[in-house]
Simulated assay, not measured.
Amino acid sequence: MKQVVLTGIKKMEMVEVAAPIITSADEVKIKLKVIGVCGSDIHYYSEGRIGSQVVEFPFPVGHECSGVIVEKGENVDNVNIGDLVVVDPSVYCGVCDQCLAGRPHTCRSNKFLGCPGQLDGCLGEYIVMPGFTCFPVTGSLNPVQAALIEPLSIGLYAVKLAALANNKQRIAIFGAGPIGLSILLKLKADGVQNIGMVEPLAYRLEKALEIGAEYGIQPNIEDVEAKVSAMNELLLDVVFEASGEQDAVDNALKILKPGGKLILVGIPPDALYTFNMDHMRRNEITVVNVRRQNGCVEEAIELVQSGKINAELMVTHQFKLEETDKAFDIVEGYKDGAIKAMITFD
């Protein structure tokens, strides 16, 4: 089968490899339909690592995908051959302390699609996964919508962890990439009104305003603290940081009210943030870390099926598998108005 692999920093190659085969009665074989290019994929592409997770080249990345079941093991009963499925890229054991505590996303032996040292990614024609990672959506979602469920579920989980007191709370989101927009889509679906988007790229800020952000701030040309303070005298209840930038964290702390919450969703390139602890301590700011998603896939599917969320609003580009290197280059360089690029097989 055809597969795209990273061969070095900002280098990709299409190769021919043997198609994966089912080796367990609990597995399914999936023919891929659509693959999303994620920000974490871009970290591996441009830096070769995310923190301690270092790529050994060659390596196929990719974890956001939808596909059709073409084969299944005898123990699989949640999907049928021919089903279009959403694929949850996280494979957990189900028996460790974390899984038993309802935290499979922090499973002690978790394996994740496209994560170095764990599982090869989905940038190819077929993958084999445990049946429990697949959610059938035949007739209710198209393949692009199905592939968008993975990033959307992270946005849902971030909002869930924020535990908003009501839909009148004052909120800001830093970063109008796919995850920041997923958070925005969920907040709007919940009826939250006072939402600001902080984003340096004008075209991304415009997209956030189109989706429903009440106001936008470009931190490279505007004073974030001054603008927020002018509109919200008591400052903000919750800030979602979805950019992975130190400046965003610094600004977020300045615009949070005493007792406010900072929800960290973005991935910093060097895996480090610094915090003004004097400010955080005196204002008793709560910091919440978001690790992928936990139990939000089905809700994300339902929200898209119902029309409450139009996840396709974030899609700006579609490419063929043979054009994957171009897709990564455009997303990594913020070229051509790129927000979300999808690799399609049709």
Rank of each mutant, 00 (worst) to 15 (best):
I211V: 02
I35W: 07
E241S: 02
E125W: 04
D41V: 08
I35E: 12
R49P: 03
L272V: 15
N167T: 01
P219G: 11
C122Y: 03
V288C: 02
K10T: 12
E298F: 00
I179E: 11
F132P: 00
V34F: 07
G212M: 10
E233I: 05
F57G: 10
L235S: 09
E56C: 04
A226D: 13
G333M: 00
I255D: 03
C122I: 10
I171E: 02
S40M: 00
E206G: 01
A101E: 02
R282N: 13
I339V: 15
G139K: 04
G102S: 08
I330F: 06
I149R: 09
E199R: 05
G62E: 07
K72T: 12
N167D: 11
M14G: 11
I301C: 02
P89E: 07
A248Y: 05
G124Q: 15
F57T: 10
T133F: 01
G82F: 08
D83Y: 02
I21S: 15
P60D: 04
G139N: 06
P130D: 07
F240R: 03
E27R: 07
E302M: 12
R282K: 14
G51R: 09
K308N: 12
D190M: 15
D83A: 05
V70D: 11
P258G: 08
A208I: 01
V28E: 05
G175N: 07
L303A: 02
I171S: 03
